[in-house]
Simulated assay, not measured.
Amino acid sequence: MHTIAIVGASVAGVRSAEALRHAGFDGRLVLVGDEPRRPYDRPPLSKAFLDGSLEEDALGLLDAADDAELALEMRLGVTATRLDPAGARLALSDGSDVVADGVVVATGGRARRLPGTEDVEGVHTLRTLDDALALRTALRGGPRVVVVGAGFIGAEVASTCRSMGLEVTVLDGLPLPLEPVLGARIARGCVDLHAAHGTDLRTATAVAGLVTAGSATGGRRVVGVALGDGSTVGADVVVVGIGIAPHTGWLEGSGLALGDGVRTDAGMVTDVPAVVAVGDAARPPGGRHEHWTSAGEQAAVAATNLLAGCTRATVDPSGYVWSEQYGRVLQLAGHPAAHHDVEIVDGDVAAARFTARFADAEGRTTGVFGMDDPRGFGRLRRRELRRPVAV
């Protein structure tokens, strides 16, 4: 291969570039990104960047030494519009194209929105740096904040807003948020953080729509959220954290199998061996893995297989994910199910500092969890899952 195009300039794309160089590829590497900015890290957007304690220049994924080592040809601020695998041609929104011997699809996903809210002022999603900048501005002046969705992103935004002294209400349709992932006992410990820090969490709550009023710009501005029981929660800012949709529409007609992402085998290889997919846009046999760590794990394997022209390696996902909420670090590794047994190995759930082990019906460890105990979590993970700690 002489030229490889990487479509997507977030962590999955950057890790793919690093993996390709590490695997010995010394040809032309073209990195295509739809944002005009250089690649940046997303996790701080809901935390330190949102409250203003971290600035944009600290988010970069690449420094001068990385630039020299990777020798990337960056095409930023343009969108991939079409892929012709047979002709190895990638069409871009500026009318240009890239002819490549191999393609890495790392286009990630788009934040899901509440239907009909696209033109309503005060309604935000949090996926990009522009999203974070707009939300950071909107949080000035002490607005009432409503967060729709109590998953990790929603909980992180609520935590950050509370640390800024804002009034926060979190709405979630599940009776116990995070229970499908962590089981009832651990999920309860996570949910209790909200109440302990003054956040009004309302579970089993349906959102019926938004309450709006005329704005100074002549449009509509949110003033509240209407709930399924007929009540209303006042709001000046609404943050929607209800997941993402894989950004794969541009691949329609390419011949690649699509469905909840780009379909790949366990080695991240698509139906066309010269095309691999990684990150949030990829849909391997076990399902999509929307986690920062997964991007690196997938990229290393995808690079090996792309250069080989066939599947020689497969991904063994660690399942590692972490979150910071209300001054505590939450860490999970492995692949537990909600019905698995939970053993508190150390600490106390009520004290919001503990480590726990998940086990299936045969007693085999399926995952480990830690709250506010990174060292204990690391020890437990090494002992039970026999894999290095991700940082």
Rank of each mutant, 00 (worst) to 15 (best):
D57G: 03
L59Q: 03
L59K: 03
L59A: 06
D63Q: 07
A64P: 00
A65T: 15
A65P: 04
A65C: 09
D67T: 04
E69H: 06
A71N: 11
L72K: 03
M74R: 14
M74T: 10
M74Q: 13
R75Q: 03
R75P: 00
L76M: 08
G77H: 00
T79Q: 12
A80N: 05
T81M: 13
L83F: 13
D84F: 02
P85W: 06
G87N: 13
S93H: 04
D94Q: 11
G95V: 07
S96W: 00
S96L: 06
D97H: 14
V98N: 02
V99K: 10
A100G: 11
A100T: 07
D101S: 12
V103T: 13
V103I: 15
V105T: 06
A106V: 07
T107V: 04
G109Q: 10
G109F: 07
A111S: 15
R112F: 09
R113K: 14
P115H: 06
G116F: 11
G116Y: 13
E118H: 13
E118F: 05
V120F: 13
E121Y: 00
V123G: 12
V123S: 12
H124F: 14
H124I: 02
L126C: 03
L126D: 04
L126Y: 03
R127W: 11
L129R: 11
D130F: 01
D130N: 11
D130K: 08
D131L: 06
D131E: 07
D131R: 04
A132H: 08
A134S: 13
L135Y: 06
